[in-house]
Design a binder for these strands. Sequence first.
DNA 1: GTCTATAGGCAGATAGAC
DNA 2: GTCTATCTGCCTATAGAC
Lengths: 214, 214
Amino acid sequence: MTSRQAGRVGTSTRILDISERVVQTKGFGCFSYADVAADLKITRAALHYHYPGKAELGEALIKRYSVRFDDALGAIESAGEAALAKLDAYIGLYADIVSQRRMCLCGMLAAEYETLPAPMQAEVVRFLDRNAHWLERVLEQGRSEGTMRLGGSASDTALLIVSALEGAMLVARPYGDIEKFRSTAAAMLSSLYGTHEPTRPAESARPAEPAGPG
Amino acid sequence: MTSRQAGRVGTSTRILDISERVVQTKGFGCFSYADVAADLKITRAALHYHYPGKAELGEALIKRYSVRFDDALGAIESAGEAALAKLDAYIGLYADIVSQRRMCLCGMLAAEYETLPAPMQAEVVRFLDRNAHWLERVLEQGRSEGTMRLGGSASDTALLIVSALEGAMLVARPYGDIEKFRSTAAAMLSSLYGTHEPTRPAESARPAEPAGPG
DNA sequence: GTCTATAGGCAGATAGAC
DNA sequence: GTCTATCTGCCTATAGAC
């Protein structure tokens, strides 16, 4: 608590920042205390003071990520735009992650799901649920506005959007081609609503730091 | 060579079978020789006789998987059906994998991409490419037939389909809900073509054993 | 809060007997 | 082809000094 006021960032936070980046890049299984210790220039043993074990660190990681994502969704919500603009801003959140050459944290953890400790598993499902439910409300708004024509139910379409975006991130990374994510997202919007504007991150709807829920 | 004729399956093949299942479930990083040795009831050391190292085993794994998948695509192709039926059969290949509670091998490896040896990385990209190109031809066939209306380009739509299906597998597994994959795939077909028939695996278009490329 | 030192486990890999 | 035995390295985690 004492070390995180003012301009400085506390060690606990820096551990989360570094861990997050590594897990989003290499996965939780291939992530080790040594990665963090080397980057932070402290010993591995010191990490255990902040997080007793890898499981607890993983849990803190995903909880912070979920809160940030929820905040970003809330920011989009309170901007009070049309449903299509909200969907566009939502895609922008994912695009920001891809542009950092990362995978969505929970998408990565979803792949590793079977190997995760139970508390982390629960948090992954929770993240996916909250995303799908938020999208579901946006889709229903679009239906009310008459700007979206839903083929299936709002909940099926919401899950399709989450799946397509997570999958687009998964596929774009091996190609090393960030544009592939944008064109795939555009094709998705096109298939859903017959339009295909290029997708841009919604600058006003993102939290301050560091680059969205990243 | 001497041990794989007749009805018996050679040790090399059994190693691949077991490794494939483990990698599709837990990932390549969390997969170890101990998993295979325990299942096969031989020692870890014996595995090195068949595959000199983990990298070579991984390479053999993904090459066999790609060949099987190509065979399955060829079988769909030579059945000579309409484009929509081909797309349905294609989705069936993925559904079979999900029904075994597995992730697509290359989808799993795509998540772990950064940690893979270079030869495996190349094979993952190759797999994605071949899938997208096959789908692209199907989409063009559908356009010729007049049964498919493409919003974007055939190549963008093809990559969207691969992404959505890989993502749907990724998301369905944490939910432990195979039906979620089917409803997501149906929503995708619906959004692409305005219909939403339930998706069924194409029985006639799959290779004999064991349950498709899965 | 961070350090040194170390325990204890499991990983991939090799040598050589059978 | 498979075994035992062993090497080396990395991992998480803990104890206790500072």
